[in-house]
Design a protein around this nucleic acid. Structure first.
Length: 236
DNA sequence: TCATTAACTGTCG
DNA sequence: CGACAGTTAATGA
């Protein structure tokens, strides 16, 4: 596990999209805030092991992480990325006793962690939190269904484009490049292909002036065109 | 200077 | 499209 740090206070936290913070904004409960654990991880450190016992819920206070699931022929698939305010570990929470996924920090990351007991108590005590979490589950379920449906019909090129647009959505782009540096390997784990295919696709997209790359950095140039290419898969 | 890592390219089944 | 080999560039011991 990571090293304990000064615990962030939900009262002063700037992650306005965080479910817990939102609920605390309605009614602040100091006793829950104080039961929260803050953990710090360096880039590359895994903080959830697939198959390990569920230890409550994690919320990203600062930094970024990838959530992975084992794919076919000993590859890993990146299920999603999580950044400031996002919840991690919700799939195992409540229903499972072990995590069905793994999670690893992509950069220096601080996580807030609530134990199962504490968070269950919070859910009973704070209806806004329960409703917020339910809406989140519904959205997640929908998103993953859409992704599965799209991926089943897409060629590598479009899966890579989807991956780039997703990365853009999560981390954004300031200036010429997106606000995260990912290896080609990580992108291939997200697009469900291999590193070489990603490299090839990126270089043709670059030749077509749809993106720019510089070392590991990637920036979108013609986002609308990329979105357009993906849009047809959203139908049906 | 050497070893390692990652981006990238070519080729083959 | 995936697998593999090989080149190149950056980095760091």
């Amino acid at each position: 596990m990571g090293t304990a740090k000064q615990t962030p206070d939900c009262k002063t936290c700037l992650n306005t999209n965080c479910l817990v913070r939102k609920s605390f904004a309605i009614e602040y409960k100091k006793e829950y805030n104080d039961k929260k654990l803050a953990l710090t991880f360096r880039s590359g450190q895994q903080f959830i092991l697939e198959g390990a016992p569920v230890q409550g819920l994690f919320f990203v206070y600062k930094g970024a992480a990838k959530v992975t699931r084992p794919g076919q022929r000993n590859r890993q698939r990146i299920v999603r990325f999580a950044t400031r305010g996002d919840v991690i570990g919700h799939r195992g929470f409540g229903t499972e006793d072990v995590y069905p996924i793994g999670a690893e920090a992509l950069e220096e990351t601080v996580l807030c962690n609530f134990s199962n007991e504490t968070f269950n108590q919070m859910l009973r005590d704070m209806p806004e939190l329960a409703i917020g979490l339910m809406h989140f589950y519904a959205k997640e379920l929908h998103n993953s269904e859409v992704k599965v449906r799209m991926f089943s019909r897409m060629q590598v090129r479009d899966r890579v484009i989807y991956a780039l647009l997703y990365i853009y959505e999560v981390f954004g782009q300031r200036g010429d490049f997106m606000n995260i540096v990912l290896s080609r390997r990580a992108i291939s784990d997200l697009a469900d292909t291999n590193e070489e295919q990603v490299i090839r696709t990126l270089s043709t997209l670059k030749k077509q002036k749809l993106i720019r790359t510089e070392g590991k950095k990637i920036g979108l140039i013609e986002r609308a065109t990329l979105v357009q290419e993906i849009e047809e898969y959203l139908k049906g």
